[in-house]
Design a protein around this nucleic acid. Sequence first.
RNA 1: GGUCCAUUGGUCUAGUUUUGGUUAGGACGCAUCCCUGUCACGGAUGAGAUCACGAGUUCGAGUCUCGUAUGGACCGCCA
Length: 592
Amino acid sequence: MKRTNYAGRTSEAQIGQEVVLKGWVAKRRNLGGLIFIDLRDREGIVQLVFNEEDDRVAFEVANECRNEYIIEVRGLVRARAQANPELATGKIEVEVKEANILARSKTPAFEIKDDVEAAEDLRLKYRYLDLRRPQMMKNMKLRSKVAAIVHSYYDSHDFMDVETPNLTRSTPEGARDFLVPSRLYDGHFYALPQSPQLFKQLLMAAGVDRYYQMARCFRDEDLRGDRQPEFTQIDTEMSFATAEEIQEMTEGLIKQVMKEALGVDVPTPFPRLDWQEAMDRFGSDKPDTRFGMEIHDLSDLVKDSSFKVFSGTVAAGNYVRAIAVPGGADHYSRKDITKKEEYIKRYGAKGLAWVKVTADGYNGPIAKFLTDLADPINERLGAKEGDLILFVADTFHVVCDALGYLREAIAKEMDLIAPNQWNYLWVVNWPMFEYDEGFGKWIAAHHPFTMLKEEDLHYLEEGEDPHQAHAQSYDIILNGNEIGGGSIRIHDPKVQEKVLKALGYSKEEANARFGFLLRGLENGMPPEGGLAFGFDRWVMLLAGADNIRDVIPFPKNSKGIEPMTAAPGMVDPEQLEELHLTVAAEAPADED
RNA sequence: GGUCCAUUGGUCUAGUUUUGGUUAGGACGCAUCCCUGUCACGGAUGAGAUCACGAGUUCGAGUCUCGUAUGGACCGCCA
């Protein structure tokens, strides 16, 4: 029997025709001499009817069927007496003349339904069952659709799809590398790429001019809800382009994806926000602009306050900033606020000060210190009666992190985010360098090959402070999530040398680590730049999923384990020997 | 490296505080039987749980304490 069409696509136009369908038994309803089976394939569900009186042989097959059996059927499409409006194929059904069981199935570990959520660990262990669920199938289809648009878009704009190696060499800085031991060279290792960054730059040196690739990237860092050790970038690079041209090209892609994959029109160009402004107003370098509750600086107002925490903070050169939570006075109890205070301590905040705005002025433990300042504070924050004002007094980064977190957490809790908003924006004008507290040194904020603002080049000269410099880099943000970033690259070897020097590399170190790139620069590198999208994260947001695992067919769990295959696993001693490896720590015995 | 939370039949969960003593309850699923217009089919019957593991407190622990494991969220980390 040759299949005539997908079960889920059986249509009214086929009424009176014979069809052959193959798929999974989603549900069997046995009424005695009459059996209904909902047949499911990747496109959806159609109802099969087996009548004992009409066809005894087919009926016996249906009688034997259980959920998740795979069957093939031949039958006649007919209109239903009573349509089911819940189902896309609800106006028709298939009267089965012949049926065969192609595969039997155990009772599945969990029910294949959208509305019954099994524990995620179980879903991952039986991922092929989980992926049968309509929502997961829909996510995979969306992912495939977006990828197809990406290929078509860049192809039509003269970008070349070029593959770069997955076995490459380890480079310092950035994320921890996944290493692959070399069998041929004792003690030598390949590294899996964190991104094809340097290869795509050298493709520009080759004259490729416009490059794109759906590139697999690997970073050996701890996982998060939106971070996997193995992920896909939409990687692009353009010669002779300015930052604005690259952003415009990117906006074109986003516009097309939104239109063709979701049917949504997004207006372009997207807003551009300076990094400094994003931090000041939203406390975040990836601001969510779907709601207000912006942060305001009160340092000038409270610098002489009798509340020593505030005045002392300002005197030390730090900041007192606040948000006004609309209607927050009733919504949040003292206890709730204490919980929030405990939470923001993880960002280094020492406390969370608050007042409630009432008809009689401020209310709360520090209200008495702020009586005289209530009017100007309210005015600056736009606070009114019934609002809750939250203050954080600390260094710039602590204030931003803490208030940025509170702003987003409260918006979610109080349901302040209207649905169906797609707020894309660019964060531009990033600092070139940032201080790493852990290492006690300056590191590249983006990466060491990022070009500075032209007007900031002088900061690299002798006697100037390179850390004042800003970069020609840009991040693309969607609803408070970083979905991509890029920059104009350095194409002048002299500038690259100075930047590496500012980062603390000696000439010898720089040559040892990036020699191949520096040689490329010396051999004629066009001015160029690019951008990389976090494809998985973008699809997650487009799908409305709240975890990146829901748009990756076989993801790792939060501990980096892939529960279906139980990777990572131990290997045979012979394999280790071939690779010239000995394992120092005795690993625990591998179970099943 | 750190913080917090969770773990009860195949699945999801009630029960855990403020009573420490229950036949550990329910829904879905599963099995058998009845049923010819269901679509969350209906009806009847039934099987299925050493309450993650280990120690402790107690006359008595699903419930309290500690530890371990597993999972989830987060901080650090992720140029």
